[in-house]
């Protein structure tokens, strides 16, 4: 929410740009997740990575249609913690999905078009469903959260 509570296409576009940045990070991060997991987990990683690539591309197209330059991917990212095991990799996937979820909640908060909000609710749900699986793999309990994308507390 903006400080003055005003929302317009500008606030919506800014939130979409932030979501695109988060999707770029997720695509990159899943490369690291996949490298640290066994072959048996690859389908789950591939599905998640492809989902983020797809929404990244749709976001970029949407922003281009608005005459906005899509946010490019960063040249590199640092891991939030060392990824030394399969559990670490799953924990990183949770971080990625939680980051994406927060970005989509921000879009919901800032959007003025219902089509954008529909995209946001769909992608937010997808991120949380993936996160549930990764929290389990990261041996976290509970595997669910009542308010995905919103600050806890």
């Amino acid at each position: 929410m903006t400080d003055d509570g005003v929302r317009d296409e500008g606030t919506e576009t800014t939130a979409l740009r932030e979501a695109l940045a988060a999707e770029h990070a997720a695509v990159w991060g899943y490369g690291t997740v996949g490298a640290a997991l066994t072959a048996g987990s690859r389908p789950q990683v591939s599905a998640a990575e492809n989902a983020h690539r797809d929404v990244r591309d749709r976001l970029a197209e949407l922003l281009q249609q608005r005459g906005d330059d899509p946010v490019p991917a960063e040249a590199g990212y640092a891991l939030p913690f060392p990824v030394l095991s399969a559990v670490d990799a799953a924990a990183l996937a949770v971080v990625l999905e939680d980051g994406v979820a927060a970005a989509w909640v921000r879009v919901l908060d800032q959007a003025v078009q219902s089509t954008v909000r529909r995209m946001a609710v769909d992608e937010l749900a997808g991120a949380e469903v993936r996160a549930v699986g990764w929290r389990g793999a990261a041996v976290r309990t509970p595997v669910t959260t009542p308010f995905p994308g919103l600050p806890q507390g």
Binding site: M1, T2, A22, G76, A78, V83, G99, A102
Partner: peptide, 29 residues
């Protein structure tokens, strides 16, 4: 783990993973 050709990591940018945490306090309530 970064690809060998990747530049030195610059950290997850605020935009990349953490940006959306800002400004959500009102939404959280």
């Amino acid at each position: 783990m970064l690809p060998p050709t990747a530049p030195a990591p610059r950290g997850f940018s605020r935009r990349a993973l953490l940006a959306a945490s800002a400004g959500l306090a009102l939404a959280a309530t």
